[in-house]
Amino acid sequence: MNLLEVLILAFALSMDAFAVSIGLGAKYRHKTIKTALLSGSYFGVFQGIMPILGLFMGYKLLIWAKEYTYWIAFIILAILGVKMIMEAFSSDSNEMKIKLTHRALIMLAIATSLDAMFAGFGIALIPLSPIIICIIIALVTFFFSFVGAVVGAKGVTFIGKKAELLGGVILIIIGFKLLMF
Rank of each mutant, 00 (worst) to 15 (best):
G54E: 13
G54N: 12
L55P: 02
F56M: 01
F56R: 00
F56T: 00
M57Y: 00
G58W: 05
G58V: 05
Y59D: 05
K60Y: 06
L61A: 12
L62N: 11
W64M: 13
W64E: 11
W64Q: 14
W64S: 15
K66V: 02
K66W: 01
E67N: 14
Y68V: 05
Y68S: 14
T69I: 14
T69G: 01
W71Q: 11
I75S: 09
I75D: 04
I76Y: 08
I76T: 08
L77T: 04
L77Y: 03
A78F: 15
A78C: 12
I79C: 10
L80T: 00
L80P: 01
G81K: 01
G81F: 01
V82E: 07
V82S: 06
K83W: 03
K83N: 08
M84C: 04
M84H: 04
I85S: 02
M86A: 04
E87V: 01
A88I: 07
A88Q: 12
F89K: 10
F89G: 11
S90I: 03
S90R: 10
S90M: 02
D92F: 00
D92G: 03
S93H: 06
S93Y: 06
S93G: 09
N94I: 05
N94Q: 09
E95I: 11
E95A: 14
M96T: 11
M96H: 02
M96S: 04
K97T: 13
I98H: 11
I98C: 08
K99Y: 03
T101E: 03
T101I: 02
H102R: 10
H102T: 13
H102P: 14
H102V: 13
H102L: 15
R103M: 11
L105F: 06
L105W: 02
I106R: 03
M107H: 10
L108K: 06
L108F: 08
I110Q: 09
A111R: 03
T112Y: 03
S113P: 10
S113I: 07
S113R: 07
S113L: 03
A116Q: 02
A116S: 15
M117L: 15
M117S: 04
M117C: 14
F118G: 13
A119I: 01
A119D: 06
G120D: 09
F121N: 08
G122E: 07
I123C: 04
I123P: 02
A124M: 14
L125N: 11
P127Q: 12
L128P: 05
L128F: 14
S129A: 04
S129P: 06
P130T: 13
P130I: 15
I131Y: 13
I131E: 06
I131Q: 08
I132N: 03
I132Y: 15
I133R: 13
